[in-house]
Write a protein that binds this DNA or RNA. Structure first.
Lengths: 392, 392
DNA sequence: GGTGATCCTGCAAAGGTTTGCAATGAAGTA
DNA sequence: TACTTCATTGCAAACCTTTGCAGGATCACC
């Protein structure tokens, strides 16, 4: 069955008896409330008592039960991170940034993958709702209205999607697409294709709109191909279509598709960038490792993760959940301030774009063969990794 | 600050009042226990009552509070998945397989990344302990004894590490390394380097042992370089060292390092596979996309994820946690059967390996240029994707 | 010695759910 | 009619913790 069974032993080292606050109280001769305070409000308990309790706790291996605590405080100190596809290298930097930011604030992050499936997405939000203090929805595939509805069940911050009334972290892919098209037009390309991503992707719509405008402004013709799966396979699958369409340049929905497309074109004997130029979006690590190295629109994924966590935690501290005091019943009347943050993107020119049919020889050659000149296309402000990105 | 503030609005759509089992009971005119049973033991409640309760629940938007439920049943229906580095493409297939397998059994998977840091690893296990029914430790960097200790706090299944007394899912990297070395020796290489991974990696030790034996048997000399970080950067960093060492072939700890090494060698003007052959381990998607395409030892990551989940759930159903009934106090005497499963690996020959200094011309050329012949090196049984991989 | 303030600790309710036990009523059997 | 059996439901304890309130002790100060 593809596996070799090595060994099966039996031992009597079962999971130990769970040790609760009660055991510690008994061992140290105080009431459970004193033990509780030793952990959650140390300044309220006599130093001598405190050390004794701590010693007993250490001794017994006591750990506060976070679930039980959450039941009372309404705070789990967990954050849910829902991701469309964990296999897409775009996400890991975002995840890591979010985790690190959360850890600084004494929060833990639980990641879950939805396989690009809206139904799984919804189910996951429900499952997470009571186990986390808030959810980060990254590149959701659900409808806006469903997101709004779910946001009434648990605080939500949306990443890579604009939902009015909800806090959002957006990347300026419109600007990115514009820069990419301008870059291609500048190289002498007049017939350009846009490789669309998933239909329900906000990024997809934004890119399409901006690319269309930029192409018109530059006197180029834009063909939209798609929607497609946002993966290598999805990119490779349209190679034939790209060749037939007769375009000399392609802007892909993301790097993965761009790389897949290059592979597909290669298999058809079409050379990149000599015959077709390709631009991706995201600047995943991989885009520096393939040949040719990929020209791409870099998105500030790390900053997005940090910002999203900040926004969630801020929103969370404003309106405590599970409030019990007087006035808790009026929760429906709570006012909430929602900020939307747009992060800049940068065009990074590498080796997958070159002069097109209408190129002026000298200039275009120069601009297509620099040694990976990480050259920002925007106003030039680097996308900072600041924690103070939340202005409300 | 690298971001543009778009808008900040205020709305009064706060999170809704949490609706509990009590509200449903009141609305449908039954006792809360009946509502509870409607969800957790439907056959115990009158069909008419049931539909009425369900209608009310639906109406009010009631969702059982999993945390509160867990407090009583001792079952959260969550699984923790602790990963050394989520940015390593080796893991996503494992994660996805685990998630899908868990979903079938009505479990949810929470993923957490440790940044290859043993301290974070330990902290995460503690944090997860009371919120999940068990933890999958993937490629842990902790010591065996610490793992054993933690396993007394929460059920654990270890992946990519052998810990006696604990259920483990292993990949036969020993066999893989042997096949790789034999492949290289067959191509005429006599001086081979092994690029080591993290010092605390079990896989690393296994590979080293098996590669050493295989090299001796084949009359080749094996140089070990490392330990190194298991990333592209780690691989690129030793390129110079590899060149100086004068070897004609390298077996890397994983694909990421192999790819990084190839990049690094390229930068030094050393061609792969003409001057140096490189073999990786894992067969990540990326290894098919770089040039040259990577010869590598394929590991059955998906099967590992599925198997690990199965083993955890099985172990879990054997010894219920938080038992309250008579005899619960004797938990220390619970007998537990622990199985260890070894999954096969396959050598996949692509374009990064070629004839070495001692090659017999005809044969070696033929074997190094097949059209990506996914050719198993073991007995030929494909690593199956079965759910029944657990024999105990 | 009385007064008040301060510090520490215990009491008990609360949070949302599950579940063993008992009570109810109806149906079935002799 | 009396006695069982069964299905359905309610009651209340339990899970583990936090926290408002109040009681007790100590101390300073007048």
């Amino acid at each position: 069955m593809g596996h070799t069974h090595v060994t099966a032993t039996t031992s009597d080292e079962g999971p130990a008896v769970p040790v609760t606050i009660r055991d510690v109280a008994r061992a140290s001769g105080v009431h459970i409330s004193t033990v509780s305070r030793t952990f959650s409000a140390p300044h309220l308990v006599n130093p001598e008592t405190r050390v004794r309790v701590l010693a007993c706790a250490e001794d017994l291996g006591y750990r506060p039960n976070r679930a039980a605590r959450a039941l009372i405080t309404g705070r789990t100190h967990n954050i849910g991170l829902i991701i469309a596809d964990i296999a897409n290298p775009f996400f890991p930097p975002l995840i890591k940034a979010a985790e690190s930011q959360a850890r600084h604030r004494d929060y833990h992050v639980f990641v879950a993958d939805t396989n690009e499936d809206p139904a799984v997405e919804e189910e996951l939000v429900h499952a997470l709702a009571k186990q986390v203090d808030g959810v980060l929805l990254c590149s959701p595939r659900m409808s806006n209205s469903l997101i709004e509805q779910l946001s009434r069940e648990v605080p939500v911050v949306v990443v890579n999607r604009q939902v009015t009334g909800l806090p959002c972290v957006l990347m300026d892919v419109g600007q990115g697409a514009r820069s990419a098209i301008e870059h291609l037009v500048g190289l002498g390309h007049r017939r350009i294709a846009l490789l669309g991503g998933p239909r329900s992707s906000w990024t997809n719509r934004e890119m399409r709109r901006a690319a269309g405008t930029a192409a018109r402004a530059g006197g180029a013709e834009l063909t939209v191909l798609g929607p497609n799966a946002p993966t290598e396979t999805g990119g490779a699958a349209v190679a034939e279509q790209v060749r037939r369409s007769g375009v000399s340049a392609v802007l892909a929905y993301n790097d993965l598709m761009a790389i897949g497309l290059i592979e597909g074109l290669d298999a058809l004997g079409v050379r990149v960038p000599q015959e077709v130029s390709v631009v991706g979006v995201d600047d995943i690590t991989l885009s520096r490792l393939t040949r040719p190295k990929l020209t791409t629109v870099a998105t500030p994924t790390g900053a997005a993760g940090r910002t999203a966590v900040d926004m969630l935690l801020q929103q969370d501290s404003e309106s405590p959940r599970g409030a019990r005091g007087p006035g808790a019943g009026t929760a429906l009347g709570v006012r909430r301030t929602t900020a939307q943050v747009m992060l800049q993107t940068d065009l990074v020119i590498r080796d997958s774009t070159g002069p097109g049919p209408n190129a002026r020889p000298a200039r275009s050659l120069a601009s297509s063969h620099g040694p990976d000149p990480h050259c920002p296309a925007g106003p030039g402000i680097p996308t900072a990794a600041t924690g103070d990105a939340v202005a409300s």
